[in-house]
Nucleic acid binder design. Sequence first.
DNA 1: TTGTACGCGTTATCAT
DNA 2: ATGATAACGCGTACAA
Lengths: 338, 338
Amino acid sequence: MNIYDISKQAGVSIATVSRVLNGSPNVKPSTRRKVMDIIDQYGYTPNAFARGLGLDTMNSIGIICADSSDLYLSKAIYYIEGNLRKNGYNCILTCSGYNHDDKEAALAMMINRRVDAVILVGSNYIEADDETNRYIMNAAAQSPVFLLNASMDCPNVFCATCDDFKAMQDAALALIDSGITDILYLYNSHSYSGRRKLGGYRSACEIRKLDIAQDLMQFYEGSHEDIDGVCRFLCGLRAQGLVFRAVLASEDMLAAGAVKYAKKNGIAIPDELSVIGYNNSLLTTCSDPEITSVDNKLEALCFQLVRTCIGVLNGEKMPPKIIYSGELVHKGTTRLVH
Amino acid sequence: MNIYDISKQAGVSIATVSRVLNGSPNVKPSTRRKVMDIIDQYGYTPNAFARGLGLDTMNSIGIICADSSDLYLSKAIYYIEGNLRKNGYNCILTCSGYNHDDKEAALAMMINRRVDAVILVGSNYIEADDETNRYIMNAAAQSPVFLLNASMDCPNVFCATCDDFKAMQDAALALIDSGITDILYLYNSHSYSGRRKLGGYRSACEIRKLDIAQDLMQFYEGSHEDIDGVCRFLCGLRAQGLVFRAVLASEDMLAAGAVKYAKKNGIAIPDELSVIGYNNSLLTTCSDPEITSVDNKLEALCFQLVRTCIGVLNGEKMPPKIIYSGELVHKGTTRLVH
DNA sequence: TTGTACGCGTTATCAT
DNA sequence: ATGATAACGCGTACAA
């Protein structure tokens, strides 16, 4: 069934059918009824491809993330997809992984599919050097690009981020000001926000005139799901004689590993070891005690990012950067002065 | 830039450009080179909408799930998307929620977009009565429909499921045969697999001639993320005088709540309370002790489902049902005889 | 208020 | 090996 079939059945031209379909006011009510009856009778819906070709849009937006099963990214996808759908857009999802070439291929694929916009979810799409980020600039020349939790100065690129630098700085300061100076900073990503968080930790140490011992900044190489691996990693550090009275983690999963480590070694939380995570995810409530963590306002960020996206697509002038402040949520793994 | 522009620049007809583009063998090598040079020079890629209109496919497959942030569903999406991409298909994702009308709307939207197939992820798309499932039958008349962890007898509908009945039955039997008879069955979904799991528990009780006390089957109404809520729920049951020496949960999150409950009430795990979860997710390794859980072979299921899907799209005869067996993974919350 | 005719950018068929 | 041209199904300017 196509528009011609419907027009024949209804005894009108395709133009009239099209007008009915698209809610044009210039149709006689009786004609509209007649056409609608036929449409309903045959359950006709216009061919989306033909529509896309004519209008040069299928109202779809590309979402690229490294790994849709990641606790944080999957939540972001959920919020973004829901908000876009409310605004009449569909989402094409692809998981790019963490490899540069694959990320580039994913973005190119979206552009080829002529999505109306692309949303890069997560901070691992922006590297420290501009050259590596060029593929995003190129894409932005074709479609607007939106970054969640990353930042880039480039026309047609819009960002929504949490101030991870400040949030991590605040978390570190809170620990220090509670009298804890041996803080192990534990991280597992060199991404944009990964670098910002590390910066926040270092800055807090500088502000409080603490020496930053190199071996108090530890990078965990293992899988993003291997909580036990984190536990073993920390046991290894302890065996090497590293002393720390707090673990400040760039992600809740690392913090969960730290809690596990403490249990295994009979270390009391928070009396002997404080633990702070990041993202304030489900994992913080799964541990016992529950993990103090930074709420990085994911839902609000996603909402604003989609808002910006819709604005841009409607031709409105939109702010290129939206920044929220993180918030330290106090739970059972810390006893902070505040 | 379109195919006409390229053909002019290369001094050939659009037919030749199209042939080069689609790797037809009937092109003189020198001509091919000439055309490819122009294509590369301008970075031309064919218009996906026009291609879609002509070929009646954009190589995209719809993925519908209730909630992409759910730990289990997000993993399924990850596996499915990755496998489909390897086979040259893109994914259009939509989260339907748990409401029937929204599910129906989501499916209709996919069909309207003329996806090559639809994959319904999770067991909450199949209800007990056929009438409610009719919307899936209707969709299957347009595009093949694939169900992950649900089952339905209908032409053009294909399923991949774990035998949740058997897996839950085995888990219950393992508890009973370890001498534990006061088993609280805790669940939070009436979905297809939810009903199968409950059936497995009941069946195990019958096999071992245990009376099934109604109040040993408890439905938790709260959020899928509220581990604390589960804990409170169990505390409430205890306060009402309900006695149980094991919690058999339909989902790891419920099991995590049970572990938390035990800790809060000074109940030793596994000596005084055994806990078994379902899905063998990240949550099982986050708890202390780690939670015994049923591995329901998600990755294998997703792989086979996509395999089936690709086969169907290639016109091959494919089996309408694939069933894997679950496997009880013994960890710290049980001390079972086996 | 309604209808005609063209354009959107491909792929495929049929000549040559 | 290559070119001309007809689909594909819609939206819409323009004419009536």
